[in-house]
Amino acid sequence: MSQTGTIIKNGLWDNNVVFAQLLGMCPLLGVSTNAINGVGMGLATMFVLLGSNIVVSLVRNYIPNDVRIPAYVIIIASFVTITDLTMNAFLLDLHKVLGIFIPLIVVNCAILGRAEAFACKNTPLSSAIDGIAMGLGFTLALTLLGASRELLGSGTFFGVNVMGPSFHPAIGFILPPGAFIVLGFILMGVRWIDMKRGKK
């Protein structure tokens, strides 16, 4: 498989931020009460990841090793602030829902993790692909978790009622414990699929 293919496959599944690395748990558990929040948070994170990966890769030969972490943090924080301001200006409703979790992208260890593990060793192009792939993987996990919790806890799917009037939503799934329970089952499913594919 080509290198690009490997990077994409790593980001979406094999080395998925959530399924394999179990990083970024705070926003994952915090905002995944419905599918739309999941998509919004995932895309915001992807944008930050893409930007920080490209910039870190561009400056990787100029930043001395001793100060690379503070430099990366400044780069990441800048992209987070840009995302925050842009969403505040043009997507006010989503911004209000995601609230504090947008500024908190800055401490999402998945992003610093990619800067440190990938972008500082690879070309800007591969780093950009890696950022998109990892971001999409995170979006996938957030959306899957959000959609499951929304379906069980509110009886809706992307805000549309699909379960009919006789369905009694289980509130527990929108509350914090529900996030852990559903995530556990999703991880179980992921491991099961991996085992079926004869890996690990």
């Binding site: 780069i75 800048s78 301001l85 842009t86």
Partner: peptide
Amino acid sequence: LGLTLMLVGMIATALLAGT
């Protein structure tokens, strides 16, 4: 080291002021 960080910080600040 200090100069590098200062430069990174200055570029970031300019970018954020623009945004």
